[in-house]
Design a protein around this nucleic acid. Structure first.
Lengths: 298, 298
DNA sequence: CTTGTTCCATGAATCCTGCTCATGGATGGC
DNA sequence: GCCATCCATGAGCAGGATTCATGGAACAAG
């Protein structure tokens, strides 16, 4: 088991060079000399037996192998970090430290408050940092995969593919609803208001299935803007229930005909974090809150 | 991100002490002095901020925190190892190194040969070590969880629970069959032959559902022994199809009545190994071979 | 072409960390 | 009480990591 003797400091240097695309910039960002970085990279390359960065005039570009190594390096550092946190958790018998949570707007607004309240009563030592992230592209799962968050509350199916190297499970499924201004002659004459998020794909699918082609499509920044635009009579939209939660009286809500699409919301985390007490407890509280959701007041 | 500056050598020392339950024995096993180990453990404990081993007369016993740290440490080392392997793989464009595969007997005998042949043609640089492990207790998944294997072919449901910190997926499901000597008066008078493996639970369940109480139960060492005993007329058995593959003519095979139990066979691997080229390719070849299985000659 | 700038590489000097050596204290068997 | 067997600790040493002081290469501007 000759497990590649790269110390955490070496890994940090690799990551810094990767980030800065430059030995000297990496050196500054770490408070080292350019020489130290150069030596460290060279010794790392000798140990791995592969060139990790192409040095050129413009700085240092990671090779394919370099990319791979840096990805692993980040993971090693995260694992070391959770190792420390977990040790303290186990020793003190209670979770402590920081839990970085990423989620989409509507969950943060309508779902999280009660969850956070219950969680912080049970685990006052845990600081929760909530990041609201739009679920586009790799979206929330990407946030976790990149190590920017420990846990995400996200759409887990069917639009979004969760990479196999992450752990996820569904928490609940919710229907999409049709929302529109209350007084209307023919809904089909109204423009469709969309927003750029993974789950908005469902909107299009359902409309297509209904052979409903809106006269116009208006893009909005996020789901709360969509709501506001609908409230002002600018058009209609198809949105997941959570986004429609406690919206104002100028909006009429109506079930979808036919094959009602549903959005599946769940959590996503890394294999490193999953066995962690803080994460397990947070998921437990989430589940508890969802059986009797405070947001069931729709 | 103060990620706990424990170098690989420190981690190895922690693991050795955990294994040997003694500073001095660990020192010997690592070719160090007892003093070095003592210093290292003390400094590790200062860094983590927690006592990791209770020192007493009889040596050093890991505390709960120590257990947790060592588990993580093993994982860090494995991750560093795959980091190196992957770097070489990416740089050379082809998988190389060792792939440690654990599986149960019948898969190794009837499934693997064709898979291994195809895989080694595609990836001649990869050495595959096959370990045949009986699937009892934590069984094959445990083999992977403990880092003794990179990939396991195992029963993934419903008997065995795969821990959430591992990655697994089903490859195929197969029915259980009833096997017995060909000429018989009443099957219910024959003894049941069982063997000690997780999937043999299914046998009992099905018999119970049929209200079939065999007059006697004979335990055998493994499934091949069961087959041989049935062939010699010593009793009957309920076995998954794969175990029954190409068994001899002195055995009669028959479908089960009622709710036919099925065994779900899949792969199990770690999140570290899953994105690895060697593992991904092996699973691909597995899947390919299963759509047109060479063992479809039953 | 020259000069200057901005990269990284390299060798020698220095500093610090990790190891060994040589002890000492604690615990328990005989 | 003596001895064996643990681990702890401090001093000293050696080697690896970092810095310092250079040098070479690529490129842009004059």
């Amino acid at each position: 088991m000759h497990s590649l003797d790269l110390a955490p400091s070496d890994l940090r240097i690799l990551i810094a060079v990767h980030r800065e695309r430059s030995f000297s910039a990496a050196a500054i960002s770490l408070g080292l000399t350019q020489s130290a970085v150069s030596h460290a990279i060279r010794s790392a390359e000798r140990k791995v037996g592969v060139v990790l960065f192409d040095r050129g005039r413009g700085g240092a570009l990671p090779t394919a192998a370099g990319e791979s190594v840096v990805t692993h390096a980040r993971r090693v550092l995260r694992l070391l970090e959770t190792m420390g946190r977990e040790a303290q958790t186990v020793a003190s018998g209670q979770a402590s430290g920081v839990l970085r949570l990423a989620t989409f707007r509507s969950a943060a607004v309508y779902l999280l408050p009660s969850v956070l309240e219950r969680f912080s009563i049970k685990h006052p030592q845990v600081d929760i940092e909530v990041a609201i992230v739009r679920d586009v592209d790799r979206g929330l799962a990407g946030e976790v995969a990149d190590g920017k968050a420990d846990l995400a509350l996200a759409t887990v199916a069917p639009t979004t593919e969760i990479p196999a190297s992450l752990i996820s499970a569904e928490l609940f499924a919710e229907p999409y609803w049709l929302i529109h201004p209350p007084k209307l002659s023919d809904l089909r004459l109204l423009p469709l208001i969309t927003w750029d998020e993974n789950c908005s794909e469902e909107t299009k699918k359902w409309l297509a299935a209904q052979e409903w082609e809106p006269p116009k499509t208006i893009p909005a920044a996020d789901d709360s803007v969509v709501l506001s635009m609908v409230a002002h009579g600018l058009g209609f939209a198809v949105m997941p229930r959570l986004s429609v939660a406690n919206c104002d009286s100028r909006i009429a809500v109506q079930r979808l005909d036919g094959q009602t699409p549903t959005r599946h919301v769940g959590y996503v985390t890394t294999p490193e974090m999953a066995p962690t007490l803080a994460v397990r407890e947070f998921i437990r509280v989430l589940r508890d809150c969802l059986t009797v959701p405070a947001s069931a007041t729709l």
